[in-house]
């Protein structure tokens, strides 16, 4: 009886995770696309030095970060993938969403402060582990914002 309840609960979480996860992911991707569109005038690069002849002024540091949680379905799918090996597609989309979100936040901060170029962009990734196995991934994007003069 207990195993049956556990099985049903597990299946319920799997279905809930799959549906809710899909909805949040597609919503997030839509939001990201429109925000990225709005930021398309900004230049970002990870160059250590600006090309000669490009005159800029007003340097300041910009940061953007996002912590994105996995859903239950992704966790189970990744667990299965761990047995057979291969690319974990469910986690790949999670990472790229988090990275895009962090990038967009960094660029928005730069634009709000009047900059149009962000250079020497660096990314950092860390896993967030809660006490009750609440797992997520944090992506930090940072760079130096300047204004073209």
């Amino acid at each position: 009886m207990h195993t049956l309840i556990a099985l049903i609960a597990g299946l319920g979480m799997l279905v809930l995770g799959f549906i809710a996860g899909r909805i949040t992911e597609s919503r997030h991707l839509r939001r990201l696309a429109s925000r990225e569109q709005a930021l398309s005038g900004m230049i970002q690069c990870n160059l250590r030095s600006l090309p000669q002849g490009l005159h800029v002024h007003g340097s300041f540091l910009v940061l953007g970060s996002a912590v994105i949680a996995t859903d239950y379905f992704k966790t189970v799918a990744a667990g299965l993938r761990n047995i057979f090996g291969g690319e974990m597609r469910s986690y790949r989309s999670l990472m790229s969403r988090a990275r895009r979100e962090a990038t967009v936040r960094m660029l928005e901060q730069a634009r709000e402060n009047g900059a149009d170029i962000v250079w020497n962009v660096r990314y950092e990734t860390s896993t967030i582990q809660g006490k009750r196995s609440a797992g997520g991934v944090e992506i930090l994007a940072y760079g130096t914002a300047v204004k073209r003069s």
Partner: peptide, 17 residues
Amino acid sequence: DIMASFKNIVGGELKGY
């Protein structure tokens, strides 16, 4: 932490974190 573990079922951003 409790909010976050709930978020681990449905996915999405952990705004608190």
